[in-house]
Nucleic acid binder design. Structure first.
Lengths: 332, 332
DNA sequence: TTGTATGCGTTATCAA
DNA sequence: TTGATAACGCATACAA
């Protein structure tokens, strides 16, 4: 592989001058410039980025951590990140944490070891304190996850209010016997959504006994198991509010397997508006997060962080949207 | 950030000795070792990987290029790659090409510029000649894509035979009026699947007129549009063989919208066994590719390539499996 | 067993 | 406008 020295020799100049044309410096005679560019072409020279990065101690790479890479929810976010990144000369690298703390720690170590210039994370398997200590020293943006205190830059929607809204929609259809699939208790987002749900039912004076609020894994299987259990225990209900679309899909699958029809027998709503929600049959009524915007905004904040600009606010709250589809029906 | 010099000073040794314990060399006195480890801990020293990589000119990173990151087909493959990579001290970085040649070229340039040690690609938007020129100089493995000649290491199933098999299954159910969704003509895989389909119908003496073989984009919308067109043109048929699950799902959506029921009115089969195929209603009859194995095998070949081992064969062909589900029904 | 010194490819400082 | 040279942090050949 040709180096800058080879180019310098070929063009009959010093490496300093070659470096100058590489950087687009104007202080090089057009004719020398041409001679150097010729040499570069002849030798098929490419700067060794490893050396450049070492020299500058920056990679122009941003690491994006997602909890599960096959989830289309994140593809849209990634597209948003990418659009801003490319415009600013950054590449994004994607990794999958599977919500595993050890894996996640490994990724943050990449930051410490200068492998990437910053991290945008949609997974927070690490204790908040640890996250904070990384964020205090390096550019870190958290997306779609609240953290208990506000010293971490984060980009979300108002999960509590959105959850209230969709619950109110179900209530407005006349449902009184409602089950809630709550997701894992250790994730702040799911706690917020649960709170929003509880606010809504309480303010309407609808009683939801404890056994109708079910903790479950935030995936299809989790939703399936939760609803299968409810049905096995002969619980009666006309609607299910799920704290995520994957759980909602699992719930519908379970209902179908037990011979119930959605939405005629039971109405189901989800949260997030993943791709499957539109394609599934029945299509899901859900809360649409502004995924692309979440991505682009996160990357913008990342750029500010890298540039050392002071943040206007640690918390960025974006708008959401209720998407009414088939699964909620029109109860009367 | 503490450097190796700081550690050396703190421990009262030379940087060479520090470097030795970092590399796990045995030729260091246990007591010096301990002193150095203490110093490392005290200073919270982490080797600067940028410097290490620069020094060794290798990154221990493998780039994986997928055409669309939200497709669960690739998540399983990625898991397979990761398992082998981790065991061998490699990290994998994932990027999404959107089948865009410019984006893909950019990624291969990362290889030339030493940003990664090798590339495993499931997307081949670049001309074969260009791919070959990269592969001739750097470790490159192509997965799930044939390339016209055999100078590129690649890992696939026998798409032609698999396509024949699933077509024969449909034929065995008694179907005679069959449509085929062919996918893009410029992708070798889809040509192979089409050939397999044609082989099967011909050998059974079933006639498939040209207008029942439809080119379309390899995604849900592509399948939808293709079938909507067929139905609008009043084409009559009892089965659809799709060259990919996404197209099959689109096909079913179109059939439903036109008032047809799957599988009662029309049987539909797909190819790949993506996650959606199992969850969709009706669940899809399809060809299951050994996704995890494709991933792990690709990474093993990558390691051989990096180690400079001679390849036994450029082509690795793995077994597939027919998965019979609801969408094919049982025609009589 | 440990230390000294060199070089990896680039950028940037300073001098010419 | 151009060139010589130092420096980035680390691994390693060679010397001690």
């Amino acid at each position: 592989m040709a180096t800058i020295h080879d180019v310098a020799r070929e063009a009959g100049v010093s490496i300093a001058t070659v470096s100058r044309v590489l950087q687009g410096s104007s202080k090089v005679l057009p004719e020398t410039q041409e001679r150097i560019n010729d040499a570069i072409r002849r030798l098929n020279y490419r700067p060794n980025r490893l050396a450049q990065q070492f020299r500058s101690q920056e990679t122009k790479n941003i690491l994006v951590i997602v909890p599960e890479i096959g989830n289309t929810f994140y593809s849209d976010i990634l597209a948003g990140i990418k659009s801003v990144a490319i415009k600013n000369g950054y590449s994004i690298l994607i990794v999958d944490s599977n919500s595993d703390p050890a894996a996640e720690r490994h990724f943050y170590e990449m930051l410490v070891q200068k492998q990437v210039d910053g991290i945008i994370a949609f997974s927070t398997a690490l204790p908040t304190a640890e996250l904070q200590s990384y964020a205090a020293q390096y550019p870190v943006v958290i997306g779609c996850r609240y953290v208990s205190d506000e010293t971490l830059p984060n980009v979300t929607i108002d999960n509590e209010k959105a959850s209230s809204d969709i619950t109110n929609y179900i209530l407005s259809l006349g449902h009184k016997k409602i089950c809630y699939l709550a997701g894992p208790a250790d994730t702040h987002v799911y706690r917020a959504r649960l709170n929003g749900f509880l606010d809504a039912v309480r303010s309407r004076g609808v009683d939801v006994p404890r056994n109708r609020i079910v903790r479950c894994e935030a995936n299809i299987q989790g939703g399936y198991d939760a609803v299968a259990n409810l049905l096995n225990s002969r619980e009666k209900f006309t609607a299910i509010v799920a704290s995520g679309d994957t759980m909602a899909v699992g719930a519908i699958r379970a209902l179908n397997n037990f011979g119930y029809h959605v939405p005629d027998d039971v109405a189901v709503v989800g949260f997030d508006d993943i791709e499957l929600s539109r394609l599934f049959s029945p299509s899901l009524t859900t809360v649409r997060q502004p995924k692309y915007l979440i991505g682009s905004r996160s990357m913008e904040i990342m750029l500010d962080l890298i540039a050392g600009k002071p943040l206007l606010s640690y918390r960025t709250v974006l708008d959401y949207e209720l998407v009414i589809r088939e699964s909620s029906g029109s109860f009367v």
